[in-house]
Deep mutational scan, measured.
Amino acid sequence: MPVRRGHVAPQNTFLDTIIRKFEGQSRKFIIANARVENCAVIYCNDGFCELCGYSRAEVMQRPCTCDFLHGPRTQRRAAAQIAQALLGAEERKVEIAFYRKDGSCFLCLVDVVPVKNEDGAVIMFILNFEVVMEKDMVGSPAHDTNHRGPPTSWLAPGRAKTFRLKLPALLALTARESSVRSGGAGGAGAPGAVVVDVDLTPAAPSSESLALDEVTAMDNHVAGLGPAEERRALVGPGSPPRSAPGQLPSPRAHSLNPDASGSSCSLARTRSRESCASVRRASSADDIEAMRAGVLPPPPRHASTGAMHPLRSGLLNSTSDSDLVRYRTISKIPQITLNFVDLKGDPFLASPTSDREIIAPKIKERTHNVTEKVTQVLSLGADVLPEYKLQAPRIHRWTILHYSPFKAVWDWLILLLVIYTAVFTPYSAAFLLKETEEGPPATECGYACQPLAVVDLIVDIMFIVDILINFRTTYVNANEEVVSHPGRIAVHYFKGWFLIDMVAAIPFDLLI
């Protein structure tokens, strides 16, 4: 008679799926529990143990900040960024110097990925580790590398530091407007667009060049630039800015003055950032001319202004700041037409079709709590990747769950009947059967004279019903998954307890 339990259901295979997918890609990662103190490590794979030199037993239950890997060259700011990422709910990448158990130093890129439950609360953290440099290539500990984003994938490793954006290309926007319009339909740009040429040739750093990471940081200074100062900065030398009595002219307006920039070969870094931020506020060169004239017309309804409409929906549905990093990277690809469009465009503009998908598509409701890094690593669709929660398995109709209350009560009843059979069957065979043979035949009273025979008949009927119930009862397979398919249940029961239950259900007393 089957006594099969499996009270692990309803099970959740999400954690096993993450481990299996990460292991298949030869990654070095740990999984931490966000619900406990210090976000203790609950799993670390073999790749991480080989990377740091510690065994799994030495890593388990330690804080996922990996303070046991810190050393003299470990930056405090990087460690603080990892700790801050564990307090938030967004994906974050941090470069930090770690030390192995043998004392060797290596520069590592740590990717902190939160995993949320159905309520939107962070319950786990996945920390992925990628070695960037070994100890002989690690720089000085005073050099802070965590304020910069990861290198873009479309640049060669040897040319990542030679990417320079020439400031004269930004200063000569109005001069290039006529050349853009003359391109017409034969050019790649839309009317009114501004073409910015980027020099990728390796050259020595000069005062006129600005690194790509500095251009990325310009967006942080746009908020500090007032509207009046932006307007004066875009007017140009024809209309000098008016300053109040006793007030000095704005240095932001002076930063885009061609006369002032041409007199000296070098520009201050602050002026460069502010000038680029001011130019980015204009949607095209037409807006710059309109600002000089004193009238700013409404933005025209053409394809170039609607190019950012799908980007707005993608940004609203993005799951991490990696989408913004990807957008900034692609927006700086050289030799393309940049349409400086305000994100607050007309909502009635139709979304044009684009061959290049900048932001990841909208994630469906079932995966809105899973970050983009987890979705990318697992390579699963929205119909396959579940949320991290207890999910009731989908069972067929008329199927009994093996952990249901009805099955528990039924098993206790069958257990009592088995005990009765084990006690009274030998007793009936030894004593009652002998008395029946010696006594007179009682054929007239039937079952009324033999109450134990009636009980034995009921017990046999219950055993037959138990066999039928076992054909529709779920079970737990070797992978700790609840199986509810009727065919698989029948095959599993035939290979197991079916023969024993059938022999126990045969009414031998009635056959004798």
Rank of each mutant, 00 (worst) to 15 (best):
S179A: 13
S26T: 06
D136Y: 05
Q81M: 12
M60G: 01
A307C: 14
M218F: 06
V295Q: 15
Y99W: 01
K93L: 14
P151E: 06
P114R: 04
F14P: 09
Q25R: 11
A217D: 11
K362H: 14
A79I: 13
R77E: 13
S178K: 08
P157A: 13
K364N: 09
G71V: 01
S278M: 15
L256G: 07
P249M: 11
P251L: 09
K161P: 08
V198G: 01
I30T: 01
A188S: 06
A350F: 10
A169R: 15
A40E: 05
I126P: 01
T337V: 07
A282D: 07
R56D: 01
G262A: 05
E230T: 07
S206D: 05
S313V: 07
P237S: 15
E134D: 12
A185Y: 09
S206N: 09
S178N: 15
A121R: 07
G186F: 06
V194N: 03
I30R: 01
M124P: 01
I42V: 12
D342W: 01
P114C: 01
V132F: 15
S320R: 08
T74E: 01
N257P: 07
N257G: 12
P240K: 11
L107I: 15
E274F: 06
D219S: 05
R301M: 07
S278G: 09
L87T: 08
R27H: 08
N117Y: 15
E91G: 09
A307M: 12
L378G: 01
S207Y: 13
P258H: 09
K161Q: 13
P237C: 10
L267T: 12
G246R: 14
E289K: 02
R148S: 14
A204Q: 06
L385W: 07
P63E: 14
R4I: 14
D219V: 06
P347C: 15
L212A: 12
A204D: 05
Y54R: 01
E23C: 06
V115H: 13
I359R: 15
F22M: 10
E208A: 10
C52P: 01
L173C: 13
S331K: 14
S153W: 07
A160K: 06
R280Q: 14
L385N: 05
F340D: 08
A350R: 12
F48I: 01
K116Q: 11
E58N: 01
F98A: 01
P72T: 04
R5I: 08
L69S: 01
T162C: 12
C66D: 01
G236D: 15
S153F: 04
L378D: 01
R159W: 12
I31H: 01
P298H: 03
D219I: 02
V377K: 03
L311S: 08
A85E: 01
M291C: 04
G192S: 05
G314R: 06
V279T: 07
L267Y: 14
R100W: 01
S331D: 15
D259Y: 09
I330Q: 14
P2V: 06
A253M: 15
E208L: 06
N369F: 12
C108M: 01
P168M: 01
A9S: 11
R301A: 12
A57Q: 15
T319L: 05
A80Q: 10
T162A: 06
V198A: 05
S140E: 14
G184V: 10
L315F: 07
V279G: 11
I358C: 12
G71Q: 01
P72Q: 05
N12V: 12
S283R: 05
L107R: 14
V8K: 10
F29A: 01
E208K: 01
V132R: 15
A121V: 09
S243F: 05
G187Y: 06
E130W: 06
G47R: 08
C276V: 09
L316M: 08
D197I: 01
V59T: 01
E130M: 09
R100M: 01
V180D: 11
K332Q: 12
S379V: 03
S182E: 06
L87E: 14
R269V: 07
C66I: 08
G186S: 11
D111E: 01
S179D: 11
Q335S: 08
C64Y: 05
I96M: 14
L248T: 09
S179Q: 06
F163E: 15
A185L: 08
T65P: 01
A217Y: 06
I96G: 01
L311A: 12
S140H: 06
R326A: 13
D219N: 15
L171A: 14
D144F: 10
P334L: 01
L225N: 12
S261H: 11
